[in-house]
Design a protein around this nucleic acid. Sequence first.
DNA 1: TGTCTTGTGTTCGTTTCGTTCATCGACCGG
DNA 2: CCGGTCGATGAACGAAACGAACACAAGACA
Lengths: 229, 229
Amino acid sequence: MSGSNPIRVLVVDDDPLACEAHIAYVRRVPGFVVAGSASNAAAALKFLAGGGVDLVLLDMNLPDRHGLEIIRTMKAARHPADVIAVTSARELETVRTAVSQGIVQYLLKPFSFATLRERLERYASYRQTVTAPTAASGQAEVDQLLAGLRGASPAAPAGLLPQTLESVVNLLRELTDLSAAELADRLGTSRVTARRYLEHLVDTGAATRDHRYQGTGRPVVAYRWRSPG
Amino acid sequence: MSGSNPIRVLVVDDDPLACEAHIAYVRRVPGFVVAGSASNAAAALKFLAGGGVDLVLLDMNLPDRHGLEIIRTMKAARHPADVIAVTSARELETVRTAVSQGIVQYLLKPFSFATLRERLERYASYRQTVTAPTAASGQAEVDQLLAGLRGASPAAPAGLLPQTLESVVNLLRELTDLSAAELADRLGTSRVTARRYLEHLVDTGAATRDHRYQGTGRPVVAYRWRSPG
DNA sequence: TGTCTTGTGTTCGTTTCGTTCATCGACCGG
DNA sequence: CCGGTCGATGAACGAAACGAACACAAGACA
């Protein structure tokens, strides 16, 4: 553990804010150091050519070339660094191509620090096993290795279910201006529960509250996803 | 399901006996057809250039070139076929490189028909989801996709009985949407034990977790065998 | 100002979850 | 034949997540 070298990470993102955020995140995870950053494909490839990178946190949407192209170039050049794809693109086709090119993780933006840390730690564990000069004892060990690299997300809010929270986020993104009662209807839960999740999103700054006047009775509280980014 | 085209497989192995055996195996799995076979790297690449291949069952030890080289050449040429690495090489370094090049599975020789079938079925499920022109609803869906592709074989129990596990798998396949309590009832075990087996299946990517809101009280956790549609 | 109408916010009981720990049997060396 | 270790199990016990119910809030309208 303490004897192994830190994993050197290159952060690539064209949005300066996101780039800084990711750098700060990586710095907070023990065992990882930020080797550098780049805001476009050309700079990223140039930095990679200089060596000293073990892992790339790679945004797919870059101004000059698509992230998938960078991966292809890297692999063709036998560059040994692994790649975690970071993107807001939800097209499954992109996921498929990225997997086919050998990415070790696929992270959807925006993600929390907890999520990134968990993925980095998984990768560190995988890397430590796999770089040892030993042989696998059998199929089971190989399976375990790959499964550990690609496990599910134990994202942990408080008092609510992670999966339901994600459904709420998706609905909020899709339909702007959602009231607690409407969400309850679409979710199959009670209004109380729907409200709990929405308030959580407001608390964490992911959503905003608003009022909708409808001519009669008490106004409805409408929730909105905060800026598509 | 029935409307989708079969997945065309190229079998590559220099040992004629093993090659024939793998061909016979693939033929026995519904939804897959053998597009051709090759006994060396040159023949494999030539066949691939002709198109009509979705998946390559690729032995790593070939007389002319190493399997990893074939994968690199394929990916550099943007060949869309996916690769399942088949090898008797247990060096973890080879595993790591192969994963880095984007293989979808890593199978150690010799393997049983049941093992290959299970991996092929996982790949078919992954492929069906990923080739649909839809977008992922969130990180959880992406994670489940990757976990299902790379998960360990469910037949690798740790702290549980293979026999019981098989019963659980059968029940889960038969009845979609099973809760831990329901399984416990049908199995004659306690809820705790039933839950242990179901969680194991989720860990290995063979099943997925879902929540069922039932009008009152805490929602129940519903488990599903993967590939619902 | 008072009333009506609609929706909000919170309390509290209900149902299920997830975990801990003792138990029971199987296997094993002596 | 006996004591010991190990592996799988389930009873029991907080804690978690939900929704029915209810009191109150906020606007419209007279």
